[in-house]
Design a binder for these strands. Structure first.
Lengths: 233, 233
DNA sequence: CAGGATCCAGACGTGGATCCGT
DNA sequence: ACGGATCCACGTCTGGATCCTG
């Protein structure tokens, strides 16, 4: 069951996602007519997310928009341990600086129009659960869990908005030296590049040109753990 | 004789180029250990230029700099008919608009620091000559002609500078509707994209966002004909 | 544990130019 | 003849994320 076309309705998307739950990644790769899952994700880090995308009919590509534009839904595949607890942080989107320099980016510091808010407003969370016992580290035996359609609540939004504004202020003022993954309660900034030698020109705090590693917004593991737990209450 | 490394000196570059003259493209593809030349360039339009690049040890890649940075020399491969007369216009470089909008690009309208001047200041022209008679349309039988190292003279520079300034004014003021390949004596603007559906956002004359096909600077065939003819006087 | 580093796939942009209809 | 349209190679960028030391 591989969908090359996007779902037309929310119900159709949810139905497709429910049909995946319980299946192993091995089964999904067979259904998609692909080679077997890799032994290790080290050289195919995005493989699971893209496998799920193909099964749900998400647009591929590298466009900075939600996965199902007609439905306004973002898909997030979450790697979980045997107990269903998220193991990793979740990438949201890249930071795009228009080489702005101090304070010039202020007019774009609008949470309501930010890509982070747009991406996280409506999310279909699809957990992928580790197998138990000896099979714990076998990718092929991981299973898709129950999907959860989630709409951002006000309490969560307030915290994300605070985090985002704090981080955006550092970014727009070019305070690159002050930026670290330690900032932010739910949302954090971390490197997003092939490797750390990739540097891009930016205008820093002193209005000088400096080189900085590209960054992305990530949701902390603590946040997705709390969120997924709430789905089972 | 395939050079993977760039020439260290101008003499070395010229020697390499002279060693190519008289050879057919078929011979060069064999020397480079490549498959035979294509029957038609329709699906490999840049093939000849890149073959010559590999034989001279030019940097490949898509960086907007001259081909031999250490020597400050730009390589231009010119397709010529059986009489050695250029058949086509010559691409110089792409137009890069920083989404400027009216008059904001004026400070960059400096011919002496322009990419067009940098690329055309010192050029190694390498003609590639059509075979005669029945073989006229056979790519493999085209032959490399005599290379000519050329330094831009003042008379030529004045005309190129006038053309460039006229074209840049139209560009920087966003007068996209007024731009056509008819403008310019030696230099002209023409589309530079995979196809005409590729459109990029620009700020037009009325400070509105509009979509325009990417453009590039080209040397008119008339100019290169006149130039190559002068080499044989 | 978690901050910083890294890896693949596919889209995209630019340099190499020539094609082709009027 | 030539203005506008088009085509491949290849490097870069972004979305998909997970890896890996201290």
């Amino acid at each position: 069951m591989l969908f090359l076309n996007p779902p037309h309705t929310l119900d159709e998307l949810i139905k497709r996602a429910r049909d995946l739950s319980g299946k192993t990644l091995s089964e999904l790769s067979v259904l998609a007519g692909e080679k077997a899952p890799p032994d290790n994700l080290k050289q195919a880090k995005g493989w699971i997310g893209q496998l799920i995308e193909r099964h749900l009919g998400a647009f591929g590509g590298s466009l900075p928009r939600v996965d199902f534009p007609n439905l306004g839904i973002e898909l997030k595949t979450i790697p979980c341990d045997g107990q269903g607890r998220p193991k990793e942080s979740t990438f949201v989107c890249s930071v795009v600086y228009p080489l702005s320099g101090p304070s010039s980016g202020m007019k774009e510091m609008d949470w309501d129009n930010s890509l982070v808010k747009r991406k996280l407003s409506h999310v279909l969370w699809v957990p992928v659960i580790d197998a138990g016992g000896e099979d714990k580290h076998i990718i092929a035996k991981r299973r898709v869990g129950n999907p959860h359609l989630w709409e951002m609540d006000l309490e969560t939004e307030n915290i994300l908005k605070q985090d985002w504004e704090e981080l955006m202020e550092l970014l727009s003022f070019g305070k690159f030296a002050s930026i670290s993954a330690r900032i932010g309660r739910y949302l954090q900034l971390r490197p997003k590049a092939a490797h750390s030698r990739i540097l891009r020109p930016q205008i820093n705090e002193a209005s000088e040109l400096s080189l900085t590693c590209p960054k992305g917004f990530y949701l902390r593991t603590l946040f997705t753990r709390q969120l997924l737990k709430s789905f089972y209450l």
